[in-house]
Nucleic acid binder design. Structure first.
Lengths: 271, 271
DNA sequence: CGAGCCTTTGAGCTTTATCAATGTCGGTGG
DNA sequence: CCACCGACATTGATAAAGCTCAAAGGCTCG
């Protein structure tokens, strides 16, 4: 599995439709390291990948939830996405982060302009019309299973996030967030550390955690001062000792138990 | 519609299995007022109702999420349920309220003892083993559609709840909660008012809203003093003017747009 | 009728938001 | 190459929202 953030500054990025064989890469990429257990498919079924519309994303790029009035479905092949809700008065809340392997159905969001889906990184997303996607699932048992599992996994993640926002103090919330990122997009670095690129700006993180951006900055400074974190630059975070960090938030254990699906783990934990 | 708060000390209440025709009531009840549009089923398909295990609930009764190590699915026929998450240190957060028509898959909750599903009222719930339920959905297109819609609806509700907890002040949060209840379980009363039984105790409401119980009590007192609410007893709430109330929280509009599925509305809003 | 639990309400304190000033990064154009 | 600009980040002082603790009613159920 390769790196984390990309850094492309390409141009055309909207809906290139893939014909069945125009992009073997798609199928190949997504079947990935998949162990093809018929009962518990861990990889996105290639038959589905072939039928989607490829969207190349850039940081900050919005992904419209409805396409010609139709419901949509997105499969995150390689990117980090944010699903965000905006109230009438402009208050915004980051609801869920979506990582590679995740699937998002537009009906998961309240109707209207309140909801938006934004890519936080450069990457690739497959887009479907919901009715077409739904038919594909009917025809493909593995695809259906993949989708149902993905939905369940994300639902669990969102529940933990809600509990963190509702019950934890600001420090614990931030730590929970860092643990989430370390678990989902972190990669091992020297001396047992873990690195990841922070895909959100300070104010986006604050919005996600239900905190004030100033407060958040203060807390990050404190964690840095305490040596729990190192930041060579604004967007790169090294976690020295993930265990020490996670011990500081009650949500850590739950967050770390949620792996991303393609993770190469010896035992395929089922739920 | 009897009592509310905990205190059940009853005895037998678990799983009575229904044979195909032992409970015609089931099918009848759940097909309810359903308009049987093949494309968009609004009622829980009777074929599914017949196959579930009927669980009669009492206030405070826990519904175990795993059954002999198997994943489960619950269909709420008549009750209000609470899905709650508990952190290792005992902090608890109410994640979602489930109303009649809702469907809950145990995998929506993080694994382990952190999650629990509790009935807040007397009522009836149908329980399935997930693998059996999954097969039923494969065999029944309407059932599959019902399930997918239900999941989407609940996901949207949970997103709004998260945004309320993350962004709103305590008064707005409480008002959002009241608007949710009025929308979901409220019934018209005299003089254009709306009544509902509050299925949660003060401290459970506080837990759901991420507030302190004392603070919550204060705010309710204030709303009562301002005449927005009337409470003949602790568990009965009259909302004098739902529009006036909902104007006080930015989340109201979104919450009110989520109707429950069996609602007899002229137009069947699709998403 | 009494025990226990839930609720209400007050006083004081902690945490976090707000406001404002200053600093840093990255890009742009002279 | 440097000066400038705008967006983002940091940090301090202050204020307010909500939490904690404690005491005093109410309800409910044996």
């Amino acid at each position: 599995m390769s790196g984390t953030t990309v850094g492309s500054d390409c141009s055309a990025m909207q809906g290139i439709h893939l014909t069945t064989d125009s992009l073997k890469t798609a199928a190949t990429l997504s079947s990935g390291d998949g162990r093809h257990n018929a009962d518990w498919p861990t990889a996105f079924p290639p038959e589905l990948a072939e039928r989607g519309t490829l969207v190349q994303t850039r940081p900050g790029q919005p992904l419209p939830l409805s396409l010609a009035g139709q419901e949509t479905v997105f499969f995150v092949r390689m990117a980090t996405l944010l699903f965000r809700l905006t109230f009438a008065d402009g208050l915004r809340q980051g609801v869920t982060l979506l990582y590679p392997g995740d699937v998002f159905r537009s009906a998961f969001a309240p109707a209207g302009s309140a909801s938006s889906l934004v890519s936080l990184s450069s990457g690739e997303v497959l887009r479907y019309r919901y009715d077409a996607f739904s038919e594909l699932l009917e025809a493909n048992r593995d695809a259906r299973r993949y989708f149902d599992r993905a939905v369940a996994r994300q639902s669990a993640r969102q529940a933990i996030h809600l509990a963190a926002v509702g019950q934890l103090d600001s420090t614990q919330r931030l730590i929970s967030f860092l643990v989430e990122l370390a678990t989902q997009i972190g990669v091992p670095a020297s001396e047992g550390r873990i690195v990841f690129e922070m895909p959100l700006s300070r104010s986006e993180v604050a919005e996600y955690l239900g905190l004030n951006a100033d407060t958040l900055s203060r807390i990050m400074s404190r964690l840095r001062a305490e040596g729990l974190l190192t930041q060579p630059d604004r967007h790169t975070v090294f976690v020295g000792d993930l265990n020490a960090l996670s011990a500081l938030s009650p949500a850590s254990a739950l967050l770390m138990s949620l792996r991303r699906p393609n993770e190469a783990t010896p035992d395929a934990a089922r739920a």
